[in-house]
């Protein structure tokens, strides 16, 4: 996978993950073009389109569009399911996820994505394992928070 974009129905970019290096300018241009192209498509249309030398796979969940750019030889249907697995993970983590969760906790959205996909390749498809890894991260954070609080009141 070359990149993944999350954007709203209003065309606002909510998350971007690039697996191939591009200058910022190019990224912005690609993003703009793709958002316009995809928003112009009708609901019943095919989820795949050819775009330059890449294939675009996208799917809409409520107010958010998830869009992936993959190479010619990559599998389109399974890319749809990568998107779905990611949505499931977000949903499980936030508890029925909505666009606001991703706006306010964008860093978490990134951390979850990094567990699912690394360097543009699927790393771990087991929902259980990904959530376990994220839970372990959260646990570390909470321990640190507790430790900090205790230190603040002079108990440590």
């Amino acid at each position: 996978m070359q990149f993944m974009l999350l954007f709203s129905r209003q065309g606002k970019l909510r998350l971007q993950k690039w697996y191939v290096a591009h200058p910022d300018k190019v990224k912005k241009k690609i993003t703009r073009e793709l958002i316009t192209t995809i928003l112009a498509r009708k609901p019943k249309m095919c989820s795949f389109l050819e775009w330059k030398e890449l294939k675009i796979v996208y799917k809409r969940y409520a107010s958010l569009y998830f869009c992936c750019a993959i190479e010619q030889c990559d599998n389109e249907l399974l890319t749809l399911e990568i998107i779905h697995r990611y949505v499931e993970l977000l949903d499980k983590y936030f508890g029925s996820v909505c666009e606001l969760d991703i706006i306010f906790n964008f860093e978490k959205a990134y951390f979850i994505l990094d567990e699912l996909l690394l360097g543009g390749e699927v790393q771990e498809t087991s929902k259980k394992n990904v959530l376990k890894a994220i839970a372990a991260q959260d646990l570390l954070q909470e321990d640190e928070a507790v430790e900090g609080a205790l230190r603040d009141i002079g108990l440590l």
Binding site: Y93, F94, C98, L100, D101, I103, F104, N105, K108, Q137, D138, Q141, E142, E144, A145
Partner: peptide, 21 residues
């Protein structure tokens, strides 16, 4: 503002709200 998970950064959440408003 939705609940913030982990050790939420209140300042960040406030800032994001401001922008959204």
């Amino acid at each position: 503002m939705p609940a913030v998970r982990g050790d939420g950064m209140r300042g960040l959440a406030v800032f994001i709200s401001d922008i959204r408003n």
